[in-house]
């Protein structure tokens, strides 16, 4: 087996790694943004903890979507049952490409949703009953994350 033959599988693994790594970074950034703003809110009114928590969780879903794809990709690659698949370079590149919607999307959406959540926090502090509206605003972004998840999922599913 020459190095070129292993290259495809290696690239596929890089794709799977990015599919979980980038969305998790995005989520971490997003959750961090909301958390920082949330700490400010809590310093004034600790009783809002549960509401702040709900808003803080929202950007966390991108990392979970990344994990879903990572799991599926590793399953397709035969990582868990020990029957590692050998891809050609072309197949490996295709696999890598299929992972990209979630990888890129999750990274960006996590950050964007974090900012929206922080904005929602200030809405919630001024009008405590409008929590649902700030959640809805933040979750509008989520729709596109779901589309990215679906496209990656459907592409990977054909491997």
């Amino acid at each position: 087996m020459n190095w070129l033959a292993l290259m495809g599988t290696a690239i596929a693994f890089i794709g799977a790694a990015l599919a979980v790594g980038l969305p998790c970074s995005g989520s971490a950034k997003g959750v961090g943004t909301v958390g920082r703003a949330g700490a400010g809110v809590l310093s004034v009114d600790p009783s809002k903890f549960s509401r702040v928590l709900i808003l803080q969780i929202l950007p966390g879903t991108q990392g979970l979507y990344g994990l879903v794809i990572w799991f599926l990709a590793l399953m397709k690659l035969g990582f868990f049952d020990g029957t590692l698949v050998t891809y050609t370079l072309r197949e490996g590149m295709a696999f890598f490409g299929a992972c990209m919607p979630v990888a890129i999307g999750g990274f960006v959406f996590g950050i964007v949703q974090g900012r929206l959540g922080a904005g929602g926090l200030s809405l919630m502090t001024k009008r405590p009953n409008e929590l649902s509206k700030s959640i809805i605003l933040a979750i509008m972004v989520e729709f596109y994350a779901i589309l990215a998840l679906l496209s990656t999922f459907l592409m990977l599913n054909n491997f």
């Binding site: 879903t61 979507y65 989520e142 779901i146 589309l147 679906l150």
Partner: peptide, 9 residues
């Protein structure tokens, strides 16, 4: 389609 995506998640 989120129904399917979240079920999967």
């Amino acid at each position: 389609t989120r129904l399917m995506a979240l079920m999967l998640a």
